[in-house]
């Protein structure tokens, strides 16, 4: 899932203080699970922002809250569409995709981000999320026993470990597990240590972010002229 954390109250306050009616929009998917932008967090931030605005002399700014199931799909934004026309600004508590989906849908309304989108990751332990995927567009997890060296090795080595691996930890950060130690341990458990004999080829980065935003097209599903942005 997409992991995000919230922006500080003063930063959001300063973004919206010049508006008169502001709607905070939460997202019920990834950011609800990572406790950043769901219904509960929106309630907290709404209360905090109203107080912060009032203390900063902007008591006239009205702040309301609502949460939709998913901000990154136009069909879910439909539920919000009529209500949104009553506001001159929206603060999206979705990931960067959610913010931009709202901005595209409401061209005449200012849209601001309420969260800092961090990464694609998983829940490591209660209240702790870690990054697992860099979205490189060319997944090679099969070569590395299911552990991504691009995301989890601080040096992004394809033929590790380096000499900085000490007792299973990375020299860059003593709290960071060495990805190549993890790859070695898991390969050993799976009986595929032979993989270490081969040299991993360099990554084809042409599938990455260089060259602008990426697009996935499913020819069998694609119907020209049909869809929210057609």
């Amino acid at each position: 899932m997409i992991v995000a954390d919230r922006k500080k109250v003063p930063e959001i306050r300063d973004m919206i203080s010049k508006h008169t009616k502001v709607l905070l929009v939460g997202c019920g998917t990834c950011v609800t699970v990572c406790l950043a932008g769901g219904e509960r967090e929106i309630g907290i931030l709404g209360s905090a922002l109203r107080m912060a605005l009032r203390l900063a002399g902007h008591a006239d700014v009205a702040v309301d809250e609502c949460t939709i199931e998913r901000q990154c799909e136009d069909a879910f934004i439909d539920i919000l569409a009529q209500r949104a026309t009553q506001y001159d600004a929206i603060v999206s508590f979705g990931c960067g995709a959610g913010v931009q989906a709202l901005a595209e849908r409401f061209p005449n309304t200012a849209v601001y981000p309420g969260l800092n989108t961090q990464f694609i990751g998983i829940l490591e332990s209660q209240g702790v999320w870690t990054e697992k995927c860099s979205g490189c567009g060319n997944c090679r997890l099969g070569e590395f026993a299911g552990i991504c060296p691009i995301t989890r090795c601080a040096k992004r080595l394809f033929n590790g470990p380096c000499a900085g691996s000490r007792d299973g930890k990375c020299e860059v950060d003593a709290d960071l597990d060495c990805a190549w130690q993890l790859i070695y341990d898991r390969s050993k458990a799976l009986g595929i240590l032979d993989n270490f004999d081969a040299i991993a080829e360099p990554q084809d980065w042409s599938t990455g972010l260089d060259g602008g935003p990426r697009k996935v097209v499913r020819e069998d599903q694609h119907i020209a002229g049909l869809g929210p942005k057609a």
């Binding site: 500080k8 109250v9 003063p10 905090a48 107080m51 912060a52 203390l55 900063a56």
Partner: peptide, 8 residues
């Protein structure tokens, strides 16, 4: 922590 951010 939030109260501190708000200014209370």
């Amino acid at each position: 922590g939030l109260l501190r951010e708000i200014g209370i």
